[in-house]
Lab assay of single mutants.
Amino acid sequence: DLSGKLIIKAQLGEDIRRIPIHNEDITYDELVLMMQRVFRGKLLSNDEVTIKYKDEDGDLITIFDSSDLSFAIQCSRILKLTLFVNG
């Protein structure tokens, strides 16, 4: 049953990962930690990372904090994230 699940599709460069999320109350910090685990070796804990999501118009919107993240989650059951490393 995928109805209650949130799917995160995260892209870093050419690498795209699909991550099912069971807890929608994820904070921004938890998201960043999850991305560091998912992209281990490509995304380091001291990297400056910018996370953006695609909205319904196809625009890339920056996620700065947990309220941005929860808004993005409300918009779509499949959250398409693009990561930019400013390392």
Rank of each mutant, 00 (worst) to 15 (best):
D1T: 04
T62A: 07
I78K: 07
R18I: 13
D29W: 03
G4Y: 12
F64H: 14
S70D: 12
L12Y: 06
I16S: 13
G13L: 03
I61M: 11
L79T: 14
A10G: 02
M35P: 00
L44Q: 10
S67I: 08
H22E: 10
I16G: 02
A72S: 02
S70C: 06
S70M: 13
E30K: 09
V85Y: 03
R18C: 15
F64T: 07
S66P: 00
D65W: 00
I21T: 07
S66K: 03
R17M: 13
C75F: 04
Y28T: 01
G4S: 12
I26L: 09
A10S: 00
R17I: 12
M34T: 10
M35Y: 01
A72D: 01
L43W: 09
R40C: 11
N86Y: 04
E24I: 09
I63P: 01
D68S: 04
L31I: 04
H22R: 09
K5F: 09
I16V: 13
D29H: 07
R40E: 14
L81Y: 02
L69A: 02
V32M: 11
L33T: 13
M34W: 11
I8N: 00
D59G: 14
D68Q: 12
Q11L: 03
L43E: 03
L31V: 03
K9G: 02
T62R: 14
P20C: 14
Y28R: 04
M34A: 14
T82A: 08
I61F: 06
G58S: 04
C75S: 14
N86P: 07
R17H: 13
A10M: 05
K52T: 12
I51G: 02
D59V: 14
R40W: 06
D15F: 14
V85A: 06
L44S: 13
I26H: 01
N23F: 03
I61E: 04
S67D: 07
V85P: 08
Q11N: 07
L12V: 02
I19V: 11
K5A: 08
L12S: 01
I78E: 15
D25V: 08
L12T: 00
Y53N: 00
I63F: 02
T50R: 06
L60I: 09
G87F: 13
H22Y: 10
M35A: 05
I61K: 15
I8A: 03
G87L: 13
G87I: 14
G41F: 05
S3Q: 09
L31R: 01
D1P: 02
P20R: 12
T50D: 15
N23Y: 05
I7R: 03
L83H: 01
S76V: 06
K5Q: 05
K54E: 14
G87M: 10
S76C: 09
K42R: 08
M35E: 00
I61H: 15
L60V: 12
R40G: 12
N46R: 10
G4A: 12
T27H: 05
D65R: 03
C75W: 03
L83K: 00
S45M: 10
S70E: 05
N46M: 10
Q74C: 05
P20G: 09
K80A: 14
L69H: 00
K80G: 11
L69F: 04
L33V: 14
K9E: 15
I78A: 11
D59W: 03
R18L: 14
Q11H: 07
R40N: 13
V85N: 10
D65Y: 00
I16C: 15
V38A: 14
D57P: 03
N46S: 09
K5W: 05
A72G: 02
M35K: 01
G13T: 00
S70A: 09
R77F: 05
K5C: 06
A72K: 01
Q36R: 10
G13F: 05
D59C: 13
R77P: 11
L81D: 00
T82L: 07
K54G: 05
F71A: 15
S45P: 09
Q11R: 11
I21K: 02
Q74W: 01
G13S: 03
I73H: 01
R77W: 03
I7G: 03
L2N: 14
R17S: 04
L69N: 02
I26T: 04
T62Q: 13
L81C: 04
I7C: 13
Q74A: 08
L83F: 03
G87W: 09
Y53C: 03
V32A: 06
L6A: 07
D29K: 10
K80R: 11
L12P: 00
D59I: 11
V32Q: 10
I73V: 09
L6K: 06
L81G: 01
F84P: 02
